[in-house]
């Protein structure tokens, strides 16, 4: 079924450009990232609800931060190209400080690390599988990459146990709120017909769930 969606044009593309980025791929990655950047602001209000828990035990806040690298997962699952996760996360991380985020340009470093983490999840499966597995894997890796960056920038005085707990929280959150949630979002987007230019949308149109 997958092979039938590949057109002659795609198969005869020159080898180094086998995964050539079309303009629609680039722009889609960028605009999805901008949209998530806006949504983050809206979601910020939601996390206030659980704020008392974080105040009592701050490392648990890591459990909700996985949402911040969901753009990387969604972008990769939609356009299915190496580099999509990294580009999406870099753009999303630039939108946040432009809108007045709390960590200023330090989010750019977070964005790069989270994007690389998700990217690695897909790379480990040779960029051949665009399913839940690499999405969750990438989400976990992004959490693991993010933890030492935040330790050194914000929490150098935390004791090792709490720092470790924080890393675990980020990884769990990455698996669920980035990996699993990103996969769910892409399925929901496919239902709307808005993914028509992408294999992720066409597989559904062709009757494959």
């Amino acid at each position: 079924m997958t092979s039938s969606t590949r057109t002659p044009d795609a198969t005869r593309a020159r080898r180094p450009h086998d995964r050539r980025w079309r303009t629609v791929d680039l722009i889609t990655v960028v605009l999805l990232a901008v949209a998530f950047g806006i949504a983050f602001v809206g979601w910020g209000a939601l996390t206030n609800v659980v704020q008392p828990v974080f105040t009592a035990l701050p490392p648990l806040a890591g459990l909700v931060y996985g949402f911040f690298w969901v753009p990387a997962v969604v972008a990769a699952l939609v356009v299915r190209r190496p580099g999509a996760a990294l580009l999406a996360e870099l753009v999303a991380a630039s939108v946040e400080p432009l809108l007045g985020g709390q960590w200023g340009i330090a989010t750019l470093g977070s964005g790069a690390l989270q994007g690389l983490g998700v990217e690695l999840g897909f790379a480990l499966l040779a960029y051949r599988r665009w399913t839940l597995l690499p999405a969750v894997l990438g989400g976990i890796l992004a959490g693991i990459f993010e933890a030492p960056y935040e330790w050194s920038l914000y929490y150098p005085e935390w004791s090792a146990g709490y720092a470790g707990l924080y890393a675990v929280a980020l990884a769990v959150s990455g698996a669920l709120l980035a990996g699993l949630l990103g996969w769910v979002i892409v399925r929901a987007l496919a239902r709307t017909g808005a993914l028509a230019p992408f294999a992720a949308g066409r597989e559904r149109l062709a009757g494959r769930r």
Binding site: T28, A39, W43, I185, T192, A194
Partner: peptide, 21 residues
């Protein structure tokens, strides 16, 4: 929040298809 996010993502995808053409 989920419904708004999905709506905005669809808007982003539509905009991307127009803009790239």
């Amino acid at each position: 929040g989920a419904s708004l996010t999905l709506g905005l993502l669809v808007h982003a995808l539509r905009s991307a298809q127009q803009l790239s053409v």
